[in-house]
Design a binder for these strands. Structure first.
Lengths: 205, 205
DNA sequence: TATGTCGCTTTGGTATACCAAATTGAGATA
DNA sequence: TATCTCAATTTGGTATACCAAAGCGACATA
C-alpha cells in the first residue's frame, strides 16, 4: 500500500484528510486501516486514531528470528517438494539477481532477491507458511532496503545465494535449512547495523 | 469472538442479521469481519459477503507444520531465556494439567494444555513469535479439541509434556526443540485422524 | 417440458451525518 | 509568570441511508 515509505513511522493518520487524499470515504479507509493494523503496519489506539507503526530494534530482531525459522522450514520442505519448473524459475531469477549485483543496481537486486525468497517460501507447498512468511516480511521490508550497505556484505550475500541454489538443486533439505538460517541471521545483522546508524532511507517501495 | 463454534464453517454471515443479533451496526461489524478475515477465521468474498472460513485437511497439515517450527524455535529460546518465575508458573500449570488428565476432564485439560504452550511460545521473549504462534493456533483451535480421542494418545501426550518440563528445567534448548517438534507432529496426526472421521465436534470454545 | 431471459429482491459497498471523547488553547487566578 | 480550568474544536466511533451488483424466481417461448 501507499503507506510504505510515503508516511513517516509514528505519523498520525487523520482519517478525513487521508480519505480525501486517496479519493475515498472514511468507511472503506477505516476498514483498510484495520487490516493494516492486524498486520502491524499501522497501530490503532482507541479513541486516538491510527499511526504508522514505528519499528524498533527489538521488533527487527524478533521478526528476523521468526523469519529465519520459517525460511529454514520452507527450505527443508522445498528441497524435497519443489518442482523442476519452479526450480528453473528460481534459478533464472538468481542469475538476473547476479546481473543486477554485477551492475551494482541495488533496487533491482533487491526486487529479485525478494522474489527468490518469496518463491522459496512458497515452494514447499505449504500455503500457511508462505502467507505467514510474507506477512512478517512486509513488516521489515521498509528497513531491509537499508541493508547491503557495505560492498563486502553484499558480495557475501550473493555467495550465500549461490550456495542456496546449489543446495536446492541437490535437494539437500538440511543443508538448505542451515544456509537459509545463517543467511537470514546475516541479513538481520546488517539491517540492525544500518538501523543503528540513525534510521536510514525507509522509502524505496 | 462468538464465531468459534457458534456458527458452522462455510455458513454465510449476513451483515444486517448478524449486526442486529449482536446489537451493533453494520459499520463496526464490518470492521470486525475484516480483522477476522485477515486472521483467516472468516473469508470475505468480493460482492459475496463473509462466510465462516472452512478448514480442510491441507490447512490443518500446513498449519501444524508451521506451528511445530515456531514452537521449536520458541523452545530453543525459552530454554536459555526463561525466568525462574515463568518456569515455576509453567510447572504449576503442568501439574494442574496432570490433575485434569488423572480425572479425565478433557475440557480443563485442554485449557491448561493451551495455556502451557502459549506460555512457552512467549517465554523466549520474542513477541513476534508469540503473536504469530497464537494467531496460527487460533485457526486450528476449534479442531484441536477433537484430538485426544484415544486414551493411548492422550497418555502419550502427557508423557511428552513431562519431557518438555524436564528439558525446560534442564535449560536444554536443542532437546526441548526436538521434543516440541515431535509433540506437535503427534498432535497433528491425532487431529488429522479425528478430522478424517467425519468432522467431529468443532464447538468447545 | 425444458430452457432462457427479464425483473425483483436480497445483500454487500460506500458515503455521509451525528455523537462522544480527547486534546488544545485561552483566560483567569494564585 | 506559571498553572489550572473550562470551553471550543478536532477527530475517531457508530448509525443510517443510498447505490450497485449478484442471486433467484417467475413467466414466456421453443
Amino acid at each position: 500500500m501507499i503507506l510504505e515509505g510515503e508516511l513517516a513511522p509514528g505519523e498520525r493518520l487523520n482519517e478525513r484528510a487521508l480519505g480525501e487524499r486517496l479519493g475515498i470515504s472514511r468507511t472503506p479507509l477505516r476498514e483498510a486501516l484495520r487490516i493494516l493494523a492486524s498486520e502491524s503496519l499501522v497501530r490503532v489506539e482507541p479513541n486516538r486514531g491510527a499511526i504508522v507503526a514505528p519499528i524498533d530494534r527489538a521488533d527487527i530482531e524478533a521478526t528476523f528470528e521468526v523469519l529465519a525459522a520459517l525460511e529454514g522450514l520452507a527450505g527443508e520442505l522445498a528441497a524435497t517438494r519443489i518442482s523442476d519448473a519452479e526450480l528453473a524459475e528460481i534459478k533464472a531469477l538468481h542469475f538476473e539477481m547476479r546481473a543486477h549485483h554485477a551492475r551494482g543496481d541495488r533496487a533491482a537486486y533487491f526486487a529479485a532477491n525478494q522474489s527468490i525468497h518469496a518463491r522459496i517460501a512458497r515452494a514447499g507447498g505449504n500455503d500457511v507458511l508462505g502467507e505467514t512468511f510474507e506477512r512478517l516480511n512486509a513488516r521489515v521490508k521498509r528497513v531491509r532496503y537499508a541493508a547491503n550497505l557495505s560492498r563486502a556484505r553484499w558480495d557475501k550475500a550473493v555467495d550465500e545465494h549461490d550456495r542456496i541454489i546449489a543446495a536446492l538443486e541437490a535437494r539437500n533439505g538440511p543443508a538448505l535449512r542451515a544456509i537459509l538460517e545463517s543467511h537470514l541471521a546475516g541479513k538481520r545483522e546488517s539491517v540492525l547495523a544500518a538501523f543503528a546508524t540513525g534510521r536510514p532511507a525507509e522509502a524505496y517501495d
